[in-house]
Amino acid sequence: MGQQYAARLAGALRSKYQCAAWLVSLPLVLAACGGQSIVLMADPGGHVGQAEVVTAAGKQRLEKSGDMTQTSGEAKPPSAVKTADPAYIASTFAEVLAIEPPPPQVFTLMFESGTTNLTTASLDQIPNIVAASQKRPAVSVRISGHTDATGSDKVNDALSQERAMQVWNLLQQKGIPARLMSVTSHGKGNPAIPTPDGVAEPRNRRVVVIVH
């Protein structure tokens, strides 16, 4: 029992010592023990967006890749933005970056006008989708029907739902297990090309299959 206590005490002291060692050996990083660090990065497509970090006492905006701010309690504002040390990123986030799931494979399928028949080019994509799901192997295959912003929502939604179901049927026939697949209709709510209401855009009338 005494041995356990001694081991725990040694562990606590060691982590405190490690904490102090960080502060001494990496003055540029100023890693606050018990604090939080937030770093902005480019997404897999290379795009850098922005983030705003807000505590009860203030906020900081991150705008460039590598921008970092740190917090140490909600009663203090986030620290002034600085550039994260690449060595800090590499060592702290190594596990997290290694486990990141790969980006999904996205397939866009088009139909003969007003029908639930895939165009020839899109029919040719079906085996590619099946192959992709088997190669990954997929944890989910999401099929979503989409419309453009013209005509009756009700008619459009019904058609996009039927089209998505048609794709589901084909994929199931070709061997993708039903338990992996889900079918939804996004109506006009998730366009490929945003348009105002009432504007026709055939490229929005599609079924999208996302393989994760």
Binding site: Q36, A42, G49
Partner: peptide
């Protein structure tokens, strides 16, 4: 625990 983060189209690393 300390903050709320609002994000627009990007990737974040948080420790």
């Amino acid at each position: 625990p300390d903050a709320t983060i609002a994000v627009r189209g990007t990737k974040l690393l948080v420790e």
